[in-house]
């Protein structure tokens, strides 16, 4: 994991990194002007390749697109200092998914109640087979540190657990026993219902679930959401994600949408 991170620029420019590598590289990219320039140039070069596969879309698509844009306004410009600069166009966000008129929902309308219910239903089914989560406990989490998250993603002993959910959402837990920390990298997660957040939990050896922080609000600067889990990930036996009221809960109050068992 400690290979030269600059060497990932090409694979990043053509979307050939997996979620965790992309998260690592984007952390690096934010502070590396050399890589920013290189990625921009390599993206221009890659874009040239599309001249080999020109194909007009069906003519009916034009009308659908022009109808779509009447339903949402363009985002305001990013003003200086308002946010971290982004190399990439902002990632697809939950509000931009579209449906085909006259057809079924496209299946990944991230903010749609339908997809949301699907996710919760699947999670509820999953929890039946796992169990052992009966005792929950409150702990006050320490604030997450960006640099610690980066260290975990780079750690030579880091191991990964991946979960894929209906609708295409994915989450990976990267855990470093030597650092005693774990990071969750999620992509394509539907936005939680209004007034709710994704809360993170670490399962202690006793089986109790301790609050471990929150998923950041729907990412605007990249599709991945990255969060450091507060607590000792070296002794933890698992991790989970639940939906809780804004502000969080002292113990889970809903079925987990994801559960990870550490080996």
């Amino acid at each position: 994991m400690n290979d030269d991170i600059h060497a990932l620029s090409g694979a990043y420019a053509v979307d050939a990194l997996d979620d965790v590598e992309r998260a690592r590289f984007e952390r690096h990219l934010a502070s590396c002007p050399t890589c920013q320039t290189e990625v921009a140039g390599l993206r221009e070069a890659a874009a040239e390749l599309s001249s080999l596969s020109v194909q007009a879309p069906p003519s009916a698509l034009r009308q659908r697109v022009l109808h779509d844009i009447t339903t949402v306004r363009p985002l305001p410009p990013q003003l200086p200092g308002s946010s971290t600069p982004t190399m990439a166009p902002d990632a697809p966000s939950g509000t931009s998914r579209v449906r085909r008129p006259g057809g079924p929902p496209s299946g990944d309308a991230s903010s749609s109640p339908r997809r949301w219910r699907l996710l919760v239903a699947a999670a509820a089914a999953a929890v039946l087979t796992i169990g052992g989560l009966a005792v929950w406990r409150s702990t006050s989490p320490a604030p997450p540190a960006e640099s610690v998250a980066s260290q975990v993603l780079e750690a030579p002993d880091a191991s990964r657990l991946v979960k894929t959910l209906p609708g295409g959402a994915r989450a990976t837990i990267v855990r470093s026993p030597s650092l005693g920390k774990a990071v969750i990298v999620a992509s394509g997660m539907p936005a939680p219902p209004a007034g709710r957040v994704y809360q993170l939990w670490l399962q202690e050896p006793s089986g109790r679930m301790a609050p471990a922080g929150f998923m950041p609000a729907a990412a605007r600067t990249g599709e991945e959401q990255v969060a450091l889990l507060n607590g000792n990930a070296a002794t933890a036996t698992g991790a989970g994600v639940t939906v809780e009221p804004v502000g969080g809960s002292a113990q889970p109050t809903s079925a987990p949408v994801m559960l990870f068992t550490f080996s």
Binding site: R43, L61, V65, D68, V72, P89, S96, R97, R100
Partner: peptide, 25 residues
């Protein structure tokens, strides 16, 4: 592919103010 193209153009519309000509074409 049609769905993805449709989603792409809606995203281009939404993000249009974020395009920065200094960073590429």
């Amino acid at each position: 592919s049609e769905e993805v193209t449709q989603e792409t153009f809606l995203e281009i519309w939404r993000q249009s103010a974020r395009f920065d000509p200094r960073r590429g074409s």
